[in-house]
């Protein structure tokens, strides 16, 4: 499995599945990262974490540890 954490900056990836459970997972989904959505990696924070993404036309930041839960194609 390849996770969003491993994706490169500038890459656009399609979400296959969300792992994990509970509050974190629900929050990620509520923010629009769901199965089949395309997510683009914009940049890393100056200190290397978190990541900035473009999802459904807006900018979202998530930690790398949470990005590891998102399986991509």
């Amino acid at each position: 499995m390849r996770s969003l954490k491993e994706a490169k900056i500038g890459e656009a990836c399609k979400v296959v599945k969300l792992h994990g459970e509970g509050a974190v997972r629900r929050r990620i989904m509520d923010m629009g990262i769901t199965k089949g959505t395309t997510v683009a990696i914009r940049k890393l924070a100056p200190l290397g974490d978190p990541i900035e993404l473009t999802v459904r036309g807006y900018e979202l930041s998530i930690r790398k540890s949470d990005a590891a839960m998102i399986e991509i194609e």
Binding site: M31, Y58, E59, S61, R63
Partner: peptide, 12 residues
Amino acid sequence: SEPTPFVMELPA
């Protein structure tokens, strides 16, 4: 505490 997601919008 349980991990709270740092899932944050960066508004325009």
